[in-house]
C-alpha cells in the first residue's frame, strides 16, 4: 500500500517535472562538466562559481567531474552534447588552447564550442628551488645555453599549460631548440610538478601562482618571473615585461564557461547574465582572491577573442618548435 502511494506520488512528481518543460530555460537541472579531477584548480574554481550561482538559478547546477586525457575526455563529452544549455563546460587553458594547439588527434576543435564568458585569470609564475645557483631568468637561460641538457622543467603532462609554458619562456628568452637543450619531464599532476622542482628532479617550473603560493611563502621555491603586467603580491620576482618580454603576458591561465557550438541563444544570454551577477558576489570574490586568481569577467565576444588570440600564439609556438603531437 505504502509502496503504491509512493509510486503514485512519484508519478505525480514526474508529471509536474515534464509539464515544467514548457517553461523557459532553465526548466531542469543544468550539468556543468569539469574536465579535471576533484580538488584541482579548475574544480575549485568551478565549485566556487557554482556556490555563487546557486542563489541566482532557480534550478540546481550539478557539477560533474569528467577527467581523463588532460581535459580532453570531458571537453569532448560537452562538444558532442545537445545545445539545449543543460550541458555546459568549465573550459580551461589546458583543454582549450594548449591541447588544441598541440594535439593533432584531439576529438574537438575550438569551433566546437560557444563561449559564454571567461571569468577567471590565473597569473603564471616561473620558479626554481630556493638556494639554487640559478636565481634569475638570466642565469637560467645562461645555464641552458652553456650546458645544454642540464636544465629540465616539470609539467603536469604532455599538452598541459605547464609544458607549453616552459618551452615558451625559454623560446622567448632566445634559447634555440628549447626542447632539445632543456628536458621536459612530465609528472602526474600540477602538485607533483611543483614537488619535482622542490626535490630536485626538475630545474624549474612555470605554473599558476596558486599552485606555488605555499612553496614560495615557505621559502622552499624561489620565483624568478611572473607573467602579469604588474608585480604579483607575495611573489618577489620581476615581471616578464620588465625583463623585456611583454609578449609573455599572453601566457596566463584562465577558466571560462562554454557550451556546445549549437548552444541556443536563450541559454547563452541567460548564462551571460548569471556570470555577471555571480562575479559580483562578495564571497566568491574573496575566495578567488585567497586561492590566488583574478576574477575578470569577459563578454562572450571578448572571451572568444581572448581565447583565439592565445590559441594563435600557442599554435605558432608549437609550429616553430615542432611540438605537435600526432
Amino acid at each position: 500500500m505504502r509502496v503504491n502511494a509512493f509510486i503514485i506520488s512519484l508519478g505525480a512528481a514526474a508529471l509536474a517535472a515534464s509539464s515544467a518543460l514548457a517553461q523557459d530555460y532553465p526548466s531542469q537541472p543544468i550539468q556543468l562538466v569539469i574536465p579535471y579531477g576533484a580538488g584541482g584548480a579548475t574544480d575549485l574554481s568551478a565549485r566556487a562559481l557554482s556556490n555563487a550561482l546557486t542563489p541566482i538559478l532557480d534550478r540546481p547546477l550539478v557539477l560533474a567531474n569528467r577527467t581523463g586525457a588532460g581535459g580532453a575526455t570531458g571537453s569532448a563529452a560537452v562538444a558532442n552534447a545537445d545545445g539545449d544549455g543543460y550541458t555546459m563546460l568549465a573550459a580551461r587553458v589546458g583543454s582549450h588552447t594548449v591541447n588544441p594547439a598541440m594535439k593533432e588527434t584531439l576529438p574537438y576543435t575550438l569551433d566546437d564550442f560557444r563561449f559564454v564568458g571567461v571569468y577567471e585569470i590565473n597569473p603564471v609564475v616561473c620558479a626554481v628551488r630556493a638556494g639554487s645557483e640559478i636565481d634569475s631568468m638570466e642565469a637560467l637561460v645562461q645555464q641552458v645555453q652553456e650546458n645544454p641538457g642540464t636544465v629540465s622543467f616539470s609539467s603536469s603532462g604532455v599538452g598541459s599549460m605547464l609544458h607549453l609554458a616552459g618551452a615558451m619562456v625559454l623560446d622567448a628568452f632566445g634559447v634555440e631548440n628549447p626542447l632539445e637543450n632543456a628536458t621536459h619531464i612530465p609528472m602526474g599532476g600540477g602538485g607533483e610538478a611543483a614537488t619535482a622542482v622542490l626535490q630536485g628532479t626538475a630545474t624549474f617550473v612555470c605554473t599558476n601562482s596558486s599552485a606555488l603560493a605555499s612553496f614560495v611563502s615557505n621559502d622552499q621555491l624561489q620565483p624568478i618571473m611572473v607573467t602579469t603586467p604588474e608585480p604579483l603580491e607575495g611573489f618577489d620576482a620581476p615581471t616578464a615585461a620588465s625583463l623585456g618580454h611583454p609578449e609573455l603576458e599572453q601566457l596566463v591561465g584562465w577558466t571560462g564557461i562554454a557550451g556546445p557550438a549549437d548552444l541556443s541563444d536563450e541559454a547563452a544570454e541567460a548564462w551571460g547574465e548569471w556570470l555577471e551577477q555571480a562575479t559580483q558576489n562578495e564571497e566568491f570574490l574573496a575566495y578567488m582572491k585567497k586561492i590566488g586568481s583574478q576574477v575578470d569577467l569577459m563578454s562572450p565576444e571578448e572571451s572568444v577573442e581572448f581565447v583565439n588570440a592565445q590559441y594563435e600564439t600557442f599554435r605558432k609556438l608549437v609550429d616553430d618548435l615542432d611540438m605537435r603531437v600526432e
Partner: peptide, 11 residues
C-alpha cells in the same frame, strides 16, 4: 547527475 531518460524524469 544520474542519467535520466527522455520518457519520465524524476525530480
Amino acid at each position: 547527475p544520474i542519467p535520466q531518460g527522455e520518457l519520465v524524469r524524476l525530480p
